[in-house]
Design a protein around this nucleic acid. Structure first.
Length: 356
DNA sequence: TGTCCACGTCT
DNA sequence: AAGACGTGGAC
């Protein structure tokens, strides 16, 4: 493609963005530079998460912690509590780590270059480019899933993802080169994918690039990008324990160990195993002290890499009951703990089941 | 109901 | 460097 036709495409996209850009709490008004703290916070939250879901969380965070320094001073536990429900909790742990580094080592200012941003925890190639371009108006190409989809269709790339990632990135860079408005262009590119060049039923009639789009010309827009088929998730099984006093308080504990739900709270649970027969044989926590009854309903939850089925076992603690760890809390105060959605599902079900 | 999508970073 | 890492919504 000639330099001239690329310029024309850039102009059309920027025009389209000027007319159709959505209002978002972290977005600066037209012609204004955004707050880098807001850009960073929103970009971390938006990793793997939709705009609609992120909205309320973003508002809550900037009210609680109006500056990166304020966030740096917060306790990790409070950050996790505020993050609870958003998923991918490593993002929250890295968010806090990053805030501390910005406050202590960067005088509270985010660096503007992609290279410096990449040094920070939780910031990879995509987020570094997004922050550098959106917050500082530096030219950088942020390639997210939206951009990959737009580019794969525009050039009718048949090679499936994820193998095609590098090819798509290079094509994206060509389309973005020298556009003159890095911040707007980055957002316009992604916004096009999010609102027009959608995964299903793309609105090609609305697209500023429709005349040059190869996939549209070939009538295969909806089939792209192709993806290598992934294997079905394995299922894991386990049990959770609802131990509720007459006073209605129930037992929760902080999760130990690394990885999944690290640092979050949960109801006592067995480990989660592939083999259902083995899982059924796992002993109840406190089974020498308490008499458990099984609820008829199970709780199901899907993770990225496995599906989970949990049996629910309930008991009322006897007089001298002593928990190994954890504490009894009321339904009203449960939101002051970082409880993942899975555990919220169990709590909700048990509160409704009238187990005592 | 199941499947796909959001597809980014870290280890 | 392939797998770990959550959750919600569309269809």
């Amino acid at each position: 493609m000639s330099r001239q036709s690329i310029s024309k495409l850039q102009e059309r996209l920027l025009d389209w963005y000027g007319k159709h850009r959505r209002v978002m709490p972290w977005r600066a008004a037209k012609g204004k530079m955004p707050n880098p703290y807001h850009v960073w916070l929103s970009e971390i939250m938006l990793q793997q998460t939709t705009v609609v879901t992120v909205g309320p969380y973003f508002m809550k965070f900037i009210e609680k912690w109006p500056t990166v320094e304020a966030l740096a001073k917060a306790k990790l536990d409070d950050v996790l509590t505020a993050w609870a429900g958003l998923g991918y909790y490593a993002r929250a742990r890295n968010l806090h780590k990053c805030a501390v580094i910005i406050a202590k080592e960067h005088g509270g200012k985010f660096p503007a270059s992609v290279e410096a941003l990449m040094e920070l925890p939780g910031i990879g190639p995509y987020t570094a480019a997004a922050i550098s371009s959106i917050a500082f108006n530096r030219s950088a190409v942020a390639v997210d899933g939206n951009v990959e989809r737009v580019v794969s269709r525009f050039f009718a790339i048949q090679e499936p993802l994820p193998a095609s990632k590098e090819t798509l990135r290079m094509h994206a860079a060509k389309l973005a080169a020298g556009n003159g408005y890095p911040g707007d262009f980055t957002q316009a590119f992604m916004e096009l994918g999010a609102t027009v060049c959608t995964p299903r039923k793309p609105k090609c009639g609305m697209c500023p690039w429709q005349r040059a789009c190869q996939a549209l010309k070939q009538g295969i827009a909806e089939q792209l990008p192709r993806k290598t088929i992934k294997a079905k998730n394995p299922v894991r099984y386990g049990k959770v324990f609802w131990i509720q006093k007459k006073s209605k308080e129930f037992l929760i504990e902080k999760r130990t160990g690394k990885g999944l739900y690290e640092g979050l709270y949960q109801l006592p649970t067995t480990e989660w195993m592939q083999d259902n027969e083995m899982a059924k044989k796992l002993p109840h926590s406190y089974n020498r002290q308490l008499h458990f009854k099984q609820l008829s309903a199970n709780v199901r939850h899907s993770f990225t890499h496995f599906d989970l089925v949990l049996e629910i076992w309930t008991a009322q603690p006897s007089k001298g009951f002593k928990a190994n760890k954890g504490k009894f809390v009321s339904a009203e105060e449960i939101d002051t703990y970082a409880l993942p959605t899975l555990m919220h599902k169990v709590v909700k079900l048990c509160l409704r089941a009238k187990t005592t």
